[in-house]
């Protein structure tokens, strides 16, 4: 008689932060428990601190010129490749989303499919934004007068709390497509899809530091990003439904440094089902206008 095989020991995953293309633990050494929608233990996630936010902003700032300097065509290709890899990891995202958001398998499938499609949609905008939002302006003189949208710089994104993947993609993709770099504070109670997305980004061709993802208490990290003098714009979507913070307070914090702030559409978190628009891209651009003398 053969002895019964011993039960296999679980190989559990350590969820960490994503800063500058690496996966460090929180500088503070803290973690917190992430549970499913039904309250079952899922994983321990890193509980980021303000110093992690500072490091993430530094990484985003140093990555920004290179990412903005890449050709629009190249950025589009790189982002499309992310969508390809998301597709390959579909099953994992479906499981993450279903557990975290308490969705049925079928609805989780739909949410992940919508997120991937949205990523592709925004990737496609990369080399079209300037054509649609730019302009040759009529001027009374012998000049070409051209306006074109340019990235604003480093964008801090407080990711939506309820929609952990589709919502995240809906705020993340429009920010990076024009050449901004971002620091994302992932959904506080549902951070796992964000870290899985980070693994996809790390193994695609997105340069290190273009996307940085922090997990932890939104109310602890977000104000430091809002006040950070080296952050150029702020998306406060995730302040809706986060404990201990309001988007109004964040907007007030951001006012000292005159940041662009993208306000949420309503008082409650949107469904994100059809939240894709060119305006989401243009929210993080600055218009550059060039005068150029016409030749005789």
């Amino acid at each position: 008689m053969r002895a019964p095989a011993p039960a296999r020991i679980d190989v559990r995953k350590t969820y960490k932060l994503f800063i500058g293309g690496a996966f460090p633990r929180s500088e503070s050494g803290r973690t917190y428990e992430v549970t499913s929608a039904k309250g079952a233990f899922l994983a321990n996630a890193a509980q980021g601190s303000r110093k992690d936010a500072r490091d993430a902003v530094r990484a985003a700032r140093s990555a920004q010129p290179g990412w903005a300097g890449a050709t629009a065509y190249n950025r589009g290709q790189v982002l499309y490749r992310v969508a390809e890899l998301l597709e390959g990891r579909r099953a994992q995202f479906v499981a993450d989303v279903a557990a975290g958001e308490g969705l049925t398998e079928r609805r989780a499938q739909d949410a992940v499919a919508a997120a991937i499609d949205r990523w592709v949609w925004y990737a496609g905008w990369s080399d079209k934004v300037a054509q649609v939002a730019g302009n040759a302006n009529p001027v009374a003189g012998p000049y070409f007068n051209l306006s074109a949208p340019e990235p604003t710089g480093v964008v801090a994104v407080i990711a939506p709390q309820a929609s952990s993947l589709l919502g995240l993609v809906s705020v993340l993709a429009p920010a990076i497509v024009t050449g901004n770099t971002v620091v994302v504070v992932a959904s506080e109670d549902r951070p796992l899809p964000a870290i899985s997305l980070a693994e996809v980004l790390a193994t695609s061709d997105v340069p290190a530091g273009v996307v940085n993802i922090l997990t932890g208490r939104t109310a602890e990290i977000a104000p430091h990003l809002a006040k950070h003098m080296d952050v150029n714009a702020l998306d406060v979507a995730g302040a809706l439904g986060a404990d201990g913070i309001t988007w109004g307070a964040l907007e007030a914090d951001a006012a000292d440094t005159v940041k662009r702030v993208l306000r949420p559409a309503g008082d409650d978190e949107a469904s994100w089902a059809d939240a894709q628009s060119l305006n989401a891209i243009l929210a993080y651009t600055e218009t550059k206008t060039v005068w150029h003398p016409k030749g005789m």
Binding site: R50, V57, H224, K227, H228, M229, D230
Partner: peptide, 14 residues
């Protein structure tokens, strides 16, 4: 120094 004085992280623009 600016960080200590204002409480907000500063950046190379300053």
């Amino acid at each position: 120094r600016q960080k200590l004085a204002t409480g907000a992280y500063s950046g190379p623009d300053y």
